[in-house]
Design a protein around this nucleic acid. Structure first.
Lengths: 230, 230
DNA sequence: GTGCTATTGTTACAGATTGAGACAATAGTA
DNA sequence: TACTATTGTCTCAATCTGTAACAATAGCAC
């Protein structure tokens, strides 16, 4: 019985951030036939913690566990209730959809954001979706329902939590240069910052370990690599 | 049909903060007979926005509309599912409770915090509860389910948002002294701050309007009253 | 090797912010 | 008038930030 496998009316969506080295990207899925774009999301099993549901979804979607994932807002406007959208997706997939199907009911969605290392991820489309790809945050396709609002709120949250959560570290490989860390910062904040000021502020935090230099073959002084300590 | 009036599995709880002039207080309700203490909360009607449901609840509970109310976290652990607790409350109120009653099902709770002026509020117990009273945050009775976790998270959120949301202003009357504003700050942050530093920082924000002096009859210089501008 | 360029690490300096204290200005009381 | 408690300012030093300058490479051309 599907009705009892998942909790009715409750969904979760994740804004999965990745950093390409230049721009901030988000994972967006594309539904077959209907042409709809959406955030990856899912439902909550009756015997599963809400956070675990989101984490399971992320694992299925990216293949990665043990990832930075944090809840940031719950969206529950009545306007979200647009059964025809869900109907279209299911019909396009040739799934039977009686009018009282649980997936066509009103949903409240708990939204999470995740920070992962772009390189380690090969997005995986799910049963209903066609493709699952990275899009730059400033070049997203038109998203279904209120998913664009969810993305906006996620970005806002990311900016607020930059210092507390060391956001950047989760978007980079274990070892990174100051330049890379700064690029992440600028991509999130949407503003540039003076190199020397940024470097000094980061180093004064005393939370980074300095490692060997990174020789890239470029003809200039090689930067040190750093990692997050503790 | 109650089942269709409210969305199943979804509840909301509010941490309603008030400031006594000395300590930070929270509104706690007490259930008849069972001896249980809980945060005021409710459910979401099928045709009602989530935020509106929380606001409606606040209005019913305090009689006040147009109040600072903000969502801060959604609690969805399986451990929350303790039908015997709800059962006890309903039985104590002599309400019929078939084992499959919707209120005995698993719930996910969206939590809000509100900031209101202590003085203007006369708490109102609802149909199921006995009393509804202010408790200092550091002297709460033992709360049911995970409500203590909700309170803790609310306090944490309040501390983070102090500057952005001008938290203090919502807890004070329209006109207040710098001393009062500082007391709110200290009550929330749990730490004392130097008077002169606080005063300078607040005034430099340039968001307060200075009014007449407040003569209390005490034998010392009278402080100015301020109000929040814009 | 020498010279050249792009980038990085560090330091210097002025301006702003903050912590801590000093001081003068009350409002009432003795 | 003297005295006390509290408040509004101001000063001074310590720290933090924005800005720029400078020295130290790593590779390339020669």
């Amino acid at each position: 019985m599907e009705q009892s496998t998942y909790l009715r009316h409750i969904a979760h969506d994740s804004v999965i951030f990745g950093f390409s080295g230049e721009k901030l990207h988000i994972l967006i899925i594309h539904y077959r036939e209907t042409g709809l774009y959406a955030l990856p999301g899912g439902f909550v099993r009756w015997d599963e913690d809400l956070d675990d549901a989101a984490r399971r979804n992320l694992k299925e979607r990216t293949g990665l566990g043990n990832i930075f994932l944090e809840q940031f807002h719950t969206f529950g406007n009545v306007q979200r209730y647009q059964p025809e959208v869900m109907q279209a997706i299911m019909t396009a997939n040739k799934l039977a959809t009686p009018a009282d199907h649980w997936m066509l009911d009103r949903f409240i969605s708990v939204a999470y954001y995740a920070l992962i290392n772009y390189k380690y991820v090969t997005p995986q489309p799910d049963a209903l979706s066609d493709s699952c790809d990275w899009y730059p945050v400033d070049e997203l396709p038109e998203l279904m329902l209120d998913h664009q609002d969810i993305v906006n709120k996620a970005l806002e949250t990311l900016r607020e939590r930059w210092d507390k959560k060391l956001v950047g570290v989760n978007l980079l490989p274990t070892k990174f240069t100051m330049k890379e860390l700064q690029l992440v910062y600028e991509a999130i904040m949407g503003e540039s910052i003076r190199r020397t000021t940024f470097q000094r502020k980061m180093l004064k935090l005393d939370i980074f370990e300095r490692h060997e230099k990174q020789y890239t073959g470029k003809s200039h002084k090689a930067p040190y690599l750093y990692s997050f300590r503790l």
